[in-house]
């Protein structure tokens, strides 16, 4: 990277930041772009941010490997892609491990230091904080009010062990479909539903086909802001402090953007007579998932899962 010593003792550094999110999504315009404005606004920091949204730098797991090698400086990553390098982080993606986003952020603030330090040792990357992405929830061709309603539907889940375990925990009949073919597959009826946060479902136009949203809110969608240690090694202390502070500050603003956008999409769906938006029997789903994971996990993973549930 273009590293020369600039004014004020801070080296001139260009940070390349990747994300899977398109420009229309809150994590881009209320996240990455804010970060760029804030850091570049402090001119004596000598930081330039180069943004690559929309998977321009590759799919999630491949981008995370590039953060490890230092070829990408910062990335927004979900837990499951990073679990290929550090399996315990996948547990945070377990269905209903967290009751809601407040529970998640409380846990991150209380246990994050210890957990992220272990993550750092294993991966050579540093998680500064997490930004909210939305609660994953079902959209399908039919209502899903209780776990039994899932039986007759083929629901597409991402093809990773944690997501497939979530499917089993909720009682869903998961089908494997590559994300590139998902829209067509839903359109032609290869699958009758999928699960994603409301804003992502709308942005990827799955709601053009799937008219029934059942708000299970079964998984906290969060994007960790993860930085390469190779990049941190090149940064001065004031630069690192400013980056950390800016990422923490943006967390709340980003969350408000996601909540506002979610409300806006849901209001649009509710106003549309061809659509149904359902509240569901969450307790039935939570009980089923918890019973499943208490036997699914073993060893350290089980301890981690139980400690998260105990803090609910």
């Amino acid at each position: 990277n273009d590293t020369t010593t600039g004014t004020g003792g801070n080296p001139q550094i260009t940070l390349k930041i990747g994300s899977s999110q398109p420009e229309t999504q809150p994590n881009y315009h209320c996240g990455m772009q804010l970060l760029k404005q804030r850091l570049e606004g402090q001119q004596d920091l000598n930081l330039t941010l180069d943004l690559f949204p929309n998977s321009q730098l590759g799919p999630d797991a491949e981008r995370f490997a590039s953060v490890q090698s230092g070829d990408i400086d910062i990335d927004l990553q979900g837990g499951s892609a990073m679990s290929t390098a550090y399996p315990p982080i996948g547990v945070l993606d377990a269905a209903y491990a967290f009751n809601d986003i407040d529970h998640f952020f409380t846990w991150v603030d209380q246990n994050g230091d210890q957990f992220f330090t272990a993550f750092n040792k294993a991966t050579g990357t540093t998680i500064i904080d997490a930004w909210y992405f939305g609660m994953r929830t079902f959209t399908a061709t039919k209502p899903i009010r209780k776990p039994e309603d899932l039986a007759g539907l083929k629901i597409r889940f991402p093809n990773t062990p944690q997501f497939l375990a979530n499917a089993e925990a909720l009682g869903a009949n998961a089908v494997a479909i590559a994300v590139e073919e998902l829209y067509l597959a839903l359109q032609q009826g290869v699958a009758q539903g999928q699960e994603n946060p409301v804003v992502a479902t709308h942005a990827q136009k799955f709601d053009e086909i799937l008219k029934v949203a059942s708000l299970t809110d079964h998984q906290v969608g969060a994007h960790y802001v993860v930085v390469s240690d190779k990049t941190l090694a090149k940064m001065s202390q004031p630069q690192k402090d400013a980056l950390t502070k800016a990422v923490h500050d943006i967390r709340a603003e980003n969350r408000k953007c996601v909540d506002d956008e979610t409300t806006k999409v849901l209001d649009g769906w509710r106003a549309d007579p061809t659509r149904t938006v359902l509240e569901v029997d969450k307790q039935a789903f939570i009980a089923k998932a918890e019973a499943y994971f208490n036997t699914h996990y073993t060893g350290a993973d089980l301890e981690l899962y139980k400690s998260i549930r105990a803090s609910a």
Binding site: G58, E62, A65, S66, S69, G70, D71, E180, E181
Partner: peptide, 18 residues
Amino acid sequence: RSPGFAMKTTFDGLNSFP
């Protein structure tokens, strides 16, 4: 770029279901 960047990108470029 890190040694391996070119090889890894070539490798990853082939990993697409379609």
